[in-house]
Computed example of a mutant assay.
Amino acid sequence: MRGLDTPALGEGIAYRTEEEVIMAAARESARFGQRAERTNVGPQTLDQLDADLRRLISAYPRRPVFPTFLEVLELRNRAFELLEGQQHPRQTRDLYLVAGIACGILSNASFDLGKMDAAGTQARTAYLCAELAGSNWLRIWVRGMQSMIAYWGDRFEEAIDLASSVRELTPEHGSSAVRLASVEARAQARLHNTEAALAALTAATVAREAMTRPDDFGGMMAFPEEKQLFYSSTCQVWLGGESRFREAARNASEAVSVYQEAPPERRRIGEMCLARLDVASAHLGLGELEGAAHEVRSVFDAATLRRTDSVRQRLQQVKEQMGESRLRTAPLAGNLRDEIIEFCAAPVPALPEGAAS
């Protein structure tokens, strides 16, 4: 119960002098100021979270997925715990950005580990955090992640709808809009919507040209030109036809060369494998079985330490393509299908119970 000598502001005005009311109002404002300036985020906390996040984002493409998942999970939990306390509004927005990026990485990692439901849950939370942080680039990046999850789940219309939902947003920096249009292009190509697929590829090029500054966060959050190249090659493979197969082979081979030339600390192994599998698909479309076999076996070697579900699914698609081609009776085709089955039989590491929550 409030004491008689500390009334709430405005209480008992009829019984107080003008000076007493003014001084009581001043004391209440001072108490509010003292409460408002409290924060559970020290001067070094956000800097450390940012540094840890950048390290993990940079390392993600070349490390085994699950150990990185665990580190990002710890960072996300730290951000969540801080958000349960009190901080200044700007610090709150920064913490939501950290939490949103961390959930985005966990979504990508869950996806790479073949846990699509967990990936979807993480992405939904990441999008909420992007909204609370007021970050357009993260909104776009997360919608691209959700679209990619739908794409690999063969829900192509859903993938297109998700990409379309933030098409009008302008990112503050970076390549998230390039990625979004490229993901949509692949979904359109899977539906054999040639005109729409080519339009989305053009939109990706326009978005690249419109970039005002590079990605603040590089690594896995960025969508470099070589990745854009092999997304384009994937579209050409699915659209089909000799000229498109040849274009796919050129684009994907160029992407592979860029990935190979990157220093080890910046090499993106999973993406390089997917680009190689586009080269393999293009070779199969052109009737060049030996070229396809070379690329597939190169993927076996490269992906040993970093198995991802998208590489496994793409290998399955190459196997199905061989079964549908005129090359399916060749001994090499039979051997290659068996090798793919054996490689894909090795399980993607499972997430421990509760890790993807």
Rank of each mutant, 00 (worst) to 15 (best):
G3D: 09
I13A: 13
A26K: 05
R31P: 13
G33N: 08
G33T: 12
Q44V: 15
L46W: 05
L53M: 10
A59F: 00
Y60A: 13
Y60E: 15
P64T: 11
P67H: 00
F69G: 03
V72I: 08
E74Y: 14
A79E: 09
P89G: 07
A99F: 08
A109C: 06
M116C: 04
M116S: 07
Y127P: 03
L132F: 04
S135N: 01
M145C: 11
G153H: 15
E158A: 02
A159S: 09
L162W: 12
V166I: 10
T170E: 05
H173K: 10
H173V: 05
A177C: 03
V178K: 07
L180Y: 07
Q188S: 08
E195Q: 13
L201R: 08
E209M: 08
D215P: 00
F217Q: 05
G218M: 10
E226D: 09
F230C: 05
Y231P: 08
V237M: 04
W238Q: 11
G240W: 03
G241V: 05
F245L: 14
A252I: 03
S257V: 15
V258C: 09
Y259K: 06
P264C: 12
V279R: 15
H283I: 08
L284G: 03
G285D: 10
G285F: 08
L286W: 05
R297F: 06
V299K: 06
V299G: 01
L305V: 06
T308E: 00
V311P: 00
G323P: 07
L327W: 12
A330N: 07
A330L: 11
A330V: 11
P331C: 00
A333P: 02
E339D: 13
A350D: 11
P352Y: 14
